[in-house]
């Protein structure tokens, strides 16, 4: 439909309507995401009275009461620390396991490669609640229950598909001749990787690591089932805020959402790379 050199009147009309529809859908989609976040922000920064009153104000009143309450809340800092430890472990493990898999997928031809790629994605289709109970039993037997490492293992399984697909796309974007040139210039496979490939994909690897971090940070189900004492922030808030007043729920949600949003925003470019669109 690109070769419409001569626009008939009603075609021009169609095009205008199309553009209007496009703008409307974009606005709607943005609103879909942004409006709830905005309400979250307003209610977090409002005094308890305002949160419970009606009609709602559209301007935050910058009351930091709810947030300061959280800063001093019992167990809050421990949960935050647990979340960071688990997310960090998840990040390290998913890159250590995912990146070599991505490298293998992009550099070697082997039987069942396409099936393997599909299977990696399909692991995401497996419902976590189904896994959680047997996992909990197994973890209790092996002593992994209620540990940061045990939870990080589960989160790593969740993050690996993304780590593999993102790094696969990154490695595919690096011409194999660069590695071959390094081999002829005195490198082994390993040194060629560390001296040539790694510097080139480091930004992408960082992005993929951050993404793994966010997956772990946001995960609540496994965290709630597999930990009791060492709860992560999500599980902790889920547990303690169930009965809490509304303004504290908003503040808790806000604390969870903001780091995830910042991280995802930082690595947005590489999330496209996962599907092999960008990164050229």
């Amino acid at each position: 439909m690109t070769d419409t050199a001569v626009l008939l009147p009603d075609q021009g009309q169609t095009r205008k309507t199309g553009r209007w529809l496009y703008a409307a859908s974009v606005t709607l989609l943005c609103a879909w995401v942004i409006v709830p976040l905005y309400f979250l922000l307003i209610n977090t920064l409002s005094s308890p009275e305002t949160v419970n009153s009606f009609p709602k104000s559209f301007v935050p009143e910058f009351d930091l009461g709810s947030l300061t309450f959280f800063a001093g809340f019992q167990g809050m800092l421990t949960a935050l620390k647990n979340s960071i430890v688990v997310a960090f472990l998840t990040m390290v493990m998913s890159i250590l396991i995912g990146a070599p898999a991505g490298y293998a997928l992009s550099r070697f031809e082997f039987r069942g490669k396409e099936a393997f790629r599909l299977l990696i994605l399909l692991t995401r289709a497996f419902p976590l609640p189904l896994l959680a109970l047997p996992l909990a039993v197994m973890f209790i037997r092996t002593g992994l229950d209620d540990t940061a490492f045990g939870l990080a293992l589960v989160h790593t399984t969740l993050a690996i598909p993304f780590a593999v697909l993102i790094t696969f796309s990154l490695f595919s974007g690096i011409p194999v001749e660069l590695e071959e040139a390094a081999w002829t210039l005195g490198c082994t496979r390993l040194t060629a990787f560390t001296k040539v490939v790694l510097p080139l994909i480091l930004p992408g690897i960082t992005a993929s690591a951050i993404f793994a971090f966010v997956i772990s940070w946001n995960e609540v189900f496994a965290a709630a089932v597999l930990t009791i004492e060492n709860r992560t922030l999500t599980a902790f808030l889920l547990q303690t805020l169930g009965e809490a007043p509304l303004h504290l729920k908003f503040a808790g949600g806000f604390i969870l959402v903001v780091p995830a949003l910042i991280f995802i925003f930082a690595v947005r470019k590489y999330l496209f790379a996962m599907w092999g669109i960008a990164n050229r």
Partner: peptide
């Protein structure tokens, strides 16, 4: 190499 393979970094 045909495509030079000069290291970009």
């Amino acid at each position: 190499f045909q495509n030079y393979a000069v290291f970009p970094h």
